[in-house]
Amino acid sequence: MAIVFQKPKSLTDVPLHYCPGCTHGIIHRLVAEAVDGLDMQAKTVGVAPVGCAVFAYNYFNCDMVEAPHGRAPAVATGVKRVCPQNLVFTYQGDGDLAAIGTAEIVHAASRGENITVIFVNNAIYGMTGGQMAPTSLPNQVTQTSPYGRDVKTAGYPIRVCEMLSTLTGTAYAERVSVDNVPNIRKTAKAIRKAFEIQKAGLGFSIVEVLSTCPTNWGLSPVESLDWLRDNMTPYYPLGVYKDTTNEGGAA
């Protein structure tokens, strides 16, 4: 009997701890599929963040390092400099990457560090219970912006792909979403492309994935997907922000 569908080899059998309706599970699967597709499982080292994906080292079936909060790009840099032939990726949320880890992500990109960053942006701190994130939208209600994010006092959300694409060291930056099947397919392609860019030694690659947090948004999973489409994509337009493959990588 022909197998038509199976779990990627690069995922373990450990049940995911994510909340019902959370899109982390989809993104995990897409990353694992991309590793399998390149036949790199035995040569992949992932770096887990602090945040909802803190247990990622239990789920990705490859060598994993658990980094301090925000430091995943620095940890990945250390791994990659020792093992340049390995496929090294970080998996980070918006608080980890765009707040406490801003210096690390900017400088990893500016060095053209040959790693891949999977950036899961759901506009909120999930694990700690729904606080305002650096990517929370203007007027978004969170536990620490109970009257809505007031840009006069809390500032404006950071558009990470736009910011990092200004850096010469960034070889590839794309923002995708997992709110529907066509977008999930695009996400799979983007992750695959980012890994290929790393394999070719072209430089720093980042895939920003717009994601949902039904629990902390206070919405059902389906409502969350609508909220993402209606509120996040206008502020965070999908698309390729930088692609230097044709020029042979980051200058």
């Binding site: 080292v45 770096v47 390092v65 980094a67 301090p68 430091r71 620095a74 940890v75 990945a76 840099t77 250390g78 791994v79 990659k80 400099r81 020792v82 093992c83 390995n86 210096a103 690390e104 900017v106 400088h107």
Partner: peptide
Amino acid sequence: CFLQAESEIAAINMVLGASAA
């Protein structure tokens, strides 16, 4: 490999990654 990091925080975490590897 000599790498001048963006901060001492980044440097020690690079050490962590390299040691893990």
